[in-house]
Amino acid sequence: MVILFGMPLVQVLLFGFAITNEIRDAKVSIVDPTPDVVTHAIRNKLFASGFFIESEILNSQEEISENFRKGESKMVVIFENDFSGKMERGEHPTIQLIADASDPNTASMLVNYSNGIISEFNRGQQASSGFTLIIAEPRMIYNPALKGVYMFVPGIITILLMLVSAMMTSISIAREKELGTMEVLLVSPLKPFNIIAGKVIPYVLLSFINAISILLLSYYVFGVPVKGSIILLLAESILFIILALSLGIFISTIANNQQTAMMLSMFAMMLPTILLSGFIFPIENMPEVLQWLSLAMPPRWFIQIIKSIMLKGSGINYFWKETLILAFIAMVFIVASIRKFKIRLA
């Protein structure tokens, strides 16, 4: 009953708040080798717009790529050397806008917004002092063609792994309860750990095969690159699979029949995976409450990890935090479900 009546409310609220494709508070870093009045004026204009917040001031090419790999900013704005000097000499100084296009929608919007702000600045400058135009050079890294598939593949992998792993395990254990086979298993000398392990291992294999086939498909059919280490990618996938499975087991310790298990997994996993993980709707745009909530969503971390590996080619040192978070959540669910596993009926 709670599910029946509560879930629609939650969904409406989630959709209402989370589904905004507008940009708000996107992290932007600045490279400004020769700060002067003009660059400051442009920077102020950018950050006053409300679309961006300043993340870091960077100094070198290495810092830029480091910054992107860590995912610390969505866009880096690079001012040319001797900016106002060039303006005074009548040359066209350039601003490079490098956007992280592993999320192509956000990237193109960021670039459009900043283009707009810069050309507005241009117009103002021309009217008042007749200075030459500033040229904005947008560049998309990680996904220069802005292919949507680059964004969808990590999300789809995540959703499918969640779906297969968590839903299938929770349903299969609930099925044992429903058909009464759990009754016989319980009377046997099997320990809860054995029962759970026996349920989980086949699904680990199954989900792993799924993950590999999605990766192969996206690589060969859609040309999504895997820039980083494949072994690392697979290892992270296994970690995520284990997490999803432990979530599934946890659900099945609560649900007594297949239907409840399915409803719970649908609502407890599918919706957050789609809505709160940053897969479709950028996390920065959500209300603060939902942003906090999304911190607890395993898919959010996993999507970040696979994007880093596949599109940015980063190594483990760039996302060990995310990995630890996933491992921690998995541990919590495993311990909770072994604790909660009932050695008796009812």
Binding site: L179, T181, E183, V184, V187, S188, I343
Partner: peptide, 18 residues
């Protein structure tokens, strides 16, 4: 219960095999 489960044969009222 753990020891007991090793020496019990139990057949529930409902068909409970796979």
């Amino acid at each position: 219960y753990k020891k007991l489960r090793q020496i019990l044969g139990y057949m529930p009222g409902r068909f409970s095999l796979y």
